[in-house]
């Protein structure tokens, strides 16, 4: 395994970051080797990184269906477990149970969505903060590249070409992220 190192560039402008990423991608850097930082969700950045549909949707959908099934099952089985007629309604009153089924659809769907977000985004992650600039949550955009020593020089050229406000070296590469 070759030793990997990292380099971080902070930009004051969005288009600098976007162009840097596009150039990196053209120069053959993989998405796994690049990381972008932004204070806002930016379509242009995501586009430059070449993202497709997020798998969070699968979580949302599965959670919702599980919730529907759970809601109806809960209401039906508990009603049949101790059959007691109330209000002249049938023991299994589907119209009444729709409400329970609906609420649990939403509950499970929402919780599964959040779970899907945590898993896919890799959160929580409370480890060290070497490759980060506190300005990224304020006004700056960042591009970080982790690559083997020889390719890192090429990355540096590309990053510097976009006039970053600051460039930092990271001697250990991915270990920190």
């Amino acid at each position: 395994m070759t030793e990997r190192r990292g380099i971080l560039a902070s930009y004051d402008y969005l288009d600098s970051a976007v162009e840097a990423i596009e150039a990196l991608r053209q120069a053959g850097f993989k998405r796994k080797e690049i990381r972008a930082f932004a204070p806002v969700p930016e379509h242009q950045l995501e586009h430059a990184m070449g993202y497709r549909q997020s798998p969070v949707r699968v979580f949302a959908f599965t959670g919702a269906l599980t919730g529907t099934a759970t809601g109806f099952a809960l209401a039906m089985f508990t009603s049949m477990d101790w059959p007691l007629v109330t209000g002249g309604k049938p023991i299994v009153s589907i119209p009444a149970f729709v409400v329970i089924g609906f609420e649990l659809t939403i509950l499970f769907g929402a919780l599964a969505t959040v779970l899907g977000f945590f898993i896919n985004a890799g959160l929580p992650k409370w480890k060290s903060r070497v490759i980060y600039d506190p300005e990224f949550s304020s006004g700056r955009f960042g591009v970080y590249v982790s690559a083997s020593q020889d390719r890192l020089e090429r990355a540096r050229e590309i990053l510097v070409a976009q006039e970053p406000a600051e460039v930092r070296e990271d001697s250990e590469g991915w270990g920190h992220a």
Partner: peptide, 12 residues
């Protein structure tokens, strides 16, 4: 539709 149906169904 449901809001109307449920109230009528329950009220009988």
């Amino acid at each position: 539709f449901w809001s109307q149906y449920l109230v009528i169904w329950y009220g009988k």
